[in-house]
Design a protein around this nucleic acid. Structure first.
Lengths: 340, 340
DNA sequence: GTCGTGGGTTGAAATGTTTCATAAACGTAG
DNA sequence: CTACGTTTATGAAACATTTCAACCCACGAC
């Protein structure tokens, strides 16, 4: 029972009439201790309600049993799916996962990283605000296993797992053009976000290759990648003169697309007849929208799982080599963009 | 610079030509050390890239600088909003937040709790699979500050923060009846989930009070509270003979409601004319649905923030008393249920 | 010149584990 | 009966920090 303080190995040892070392062995190498004493010790642990103190273990071992994921935006289910993938891999390796959320603010991100460093986590996975931030390079210099998720670094100085965003932008636009659209909006921002820049780049590339006039791919920048911003982009779209108004929109993520969809329907537009919509990420809610959303699918859990494997390799394998994993996203066509 | 091992206070002390204790003082009580030495030490810390080892500090201090939240279902944005509220409060108290996800599985939950105990977290917030689980009582017995979120315990042996689910059920049904519905479905499950039971109870209470025949409030149980289950409940609903088919549905959460909405629209129903829908939680996506969803709003962030404050009080205030905080949810009427 | 006073610094102890070299106990082969 | 191996158990050291009593020294008061 509980008599004030939480019991330590010392208390267990005393209760079982053995030495400290033996108790430790029962926990860590049960095979070297005889069945009789093992039982006695286990009973003592149960009686006292002993729980191993992880700080002490960690202090001695020099390393913790946790990974950490610093996500970019907690309001976007996409990142939780990534986290779920990481968690599964962590669980397999018998590690805990620390989940942090920077909310797209660099200073929160840096504060989280500082904390994680103090905790001596085994490795850090991060979808950074800016993958070139100096404090990220510091981590690598320090030797902390680091994997950048859903982004990559220009030089290849750490592992990363990402999707080919340029390609994603291409397939989205190709699809819309195939459906007969010749005036299309790209909705996304701010363009400090690398994903946005590359998806737009892909869109523009293929638009040019198909010989369409650059002016007919209009860029509607947003302040953030949220449902609310999607709605307000919809209003701006509706405000355009009919001749210049696009008949389709490619949104840089699904939250924007859902906001746009809602605003459009609320304003009496028929989707896809008056306005076709393509999103990005293919989150759960995309398929569940009232007009199921066409989206560029990222393998969300896979991304997380692969990243976790990389970070574990870096943490445990002495001749680890940095890798840049690259997944190819694919278009999932649904009702929101079907041919007119 | 990094010469193999990460530097400790000892290294810093050597580099600055002072004792261990002084370095510690610089970090924890800068006012007692003279400006000159303080600067010297700080420079040494910077030069060596010193990062305090949290395990060692924690071992000595006996307590960690973290809270933990064990959420019930990572796929439901509701819980992330709660987590966000907790995080804000934790940040104010200069604590880290450990987020775990039980995915509605008791054994995962127990495993997480075990880990958290080993980490000696300052307090645990949890939305449990079953608030009467014996291992939860163990925590209380152990003296771990514990707050149950979005649930409460029958006896009042720990703090809890919840909304009045019975009341929530009542207002949902009152609203639907006001809109003229006399045949309504309640969709939710499994009924091992307390929230489901109480929302249903409230619904039945008011239904009876209004003098409506019990048979006309039909209970469609689901296996889980997901979008997919909402869709399949929609199919079951459509399969009912027209005379017995409800004209409105009250779903135990918004995910179910969104699934139902999508299935309904896909099958050609007009919402709310053919089928009115009310959800529960009022997650972000509820308002953003193509037919904006009427929902019973829980103050999501507030719930988390209040819970964090309770757990902090229990952790720091010696004459803490357990409290059962109770919020009253309110109906947010939107298009999915407007009068016919 | 001695005695406090008090700011600044020190060194050792303590926290709960794990590890490892060593010791004890116990068989068994010679 | 001894010597030797094996199996089990022990005790001390180490991990990085914080805390606290003790100490030093300069300075002003007497």
């Amino acid at each position: 029972m509980l008599n004030g303080r939480t019991p330590s190995v010392k208390d267990v040892a005393a209760a079982a009439g053995v030495s400290l070392g033996t108790v430790s062995n029962v926990m860590n190498r049960p095979e070297v201790v005889s069945a009789r004493t093992r039982e006695r010790v286990e009973r003592a642990m149960a009686d006292l309600g002993f729980v191993r103190n992880e700080s002490a273990r960690q202090l001695r071992a020099g390393t913790s049993r946790t990974l950490a994921y610093v996500m970019l935006d907690g309001t976007n289910p996409f990142f939780h799916d990534v986290a779920q993938g990481i968690e599964l891999a962590a669980e397999d390796a018998d590690l805990s996962l620390f989940i942090c959320n920077s909310n797209s603010r660099a200073e929160r991100e840096e504060a989280h990283l500082d904390r994680l460093l103090q905790q001596r986590v085994q490795g850090i996975l991060i979808t950074p605000v800016n993958s070139e931030a100096p404090y990220l390079y510091d981590l690598t210099r320090r030797g902390v296993p680091l994997v950048i998720v859903d982004r990559r670094r220009d030089d290849e100085s750490c592992c990363s797992v990402a999707v080919d965003d340029v390609h994603g932008g291409r397939v989205a636009i190709e699809h819309l053009v195939e459906q007969g659209h010749t005036k299309v909006a790209f909705i996304g921002g701010p363009d400090s976000i690398g994903q946005v820049r590359e998806r737009l780049q892909g869109a523009r590339e293929v638009w040019a290759e198909l010989g369409l006039p650059a002016d007919d791919l209009v860029y509607l920048p947003t302040e953030a990648m949220t449902v609310g911003e999607g709605r307000s982009a919809g209003e701006r779209l509706a405000g355009l003169p009919a001749r210049r108004r696009p008949t389709a929109a490619f949104c840089a993520n699904d939250l924007l697309a859902l906001g746009l969809l809602q605003q459009g329907i609320g304003a009496g537009l028929r989707v896809p007849d008056d306005l076709a919509i393509v999103g990005f990420d293919d989150i759960e809610f995309a398929a569940a929208a009232a007009v199921p959303l066409t989206s560029v699918r990222q393998p969300r859990q896979e991304l997380g799982r692969a990243a976790a494997q990389l970070v574990l390799d870096e943490a445990t394998n002495p001749d680890h080599e940095h890798q840049q994993l690259f997944f190819t996203p694919e278009l999932v066509a649904r009702a929101s963009s079907r041919a007119r």
